[in-house]
Amino acid sequence: MIDETVLEHRLLNLEQAISDLQRKVEGKPSENWLEKLIGSISDEEAFLKALEYGRAFRQADKPTDEDEE
């Protein structure tokens, strides 16, 4: 069985942690998560490669004009 003093100490620690978290949340302005995400990976090599694959796929899907040949 847990000693009552230990339990009270743990409860005080939890209350303090919750209080700290509430202060952190209340102090921050609301951020638009999408605005934070936009452009965040635009310089990543894998992202640039995915863009190139998408571009090539779209180009391959375009009908060819037989009159141009």
Rank of each mutant, 00 (worst) to 15 (best):
F47P: 00
E31S: 09
S19Q: 13
G54D: 13
I38F: 02
E35M: 04
L21H: 03
L12G: 10
I41G: 10
Y53H: 12
E52F: 07
A17C: 05
E15Y: 03
E15G: 00
Q59C: 04
G27D: 08
K36A: 06
E26Q: 14
G54P: 00
E26G: 10
L48P: 00
E45I: 02
S42K: 10
E45T: 05
G27C: 05
Y53L: 11
W33M: 10
E52P: 01
G27H: 04
G39M: 04
Y53T: 02
L14G: 04
K62G: 03
S19E: 14
A60I: 00
L51H: 04
A56C: 08
Q22D: 14
L37Q: 10
G39F: 03
F57S: 12
K24R: 14
K28P: 00
A56Y: 07
K62C: 11
R23I: 03
R58A: 15
L21N: 05
L21K: 05
S40E: 09
W33D: 07
N32A: 02
F47R: 06
V25G: 02
P29G: 06
Q59N: 08
K49E: 15
L34R: 14
A17G: 03
R23D: 10
E52M: 08
I41S: 09
A17V: 03
S42G: 12
D43P: 02
V25H: 04
L14Q: 11
I41P: 01
E45C: 05
K24A: 10
F57V: 03
L51F: 02
V25Q: 06
E52S: 09
F57I: 03
Q16E: 12
F57L: 13
E26P: 00
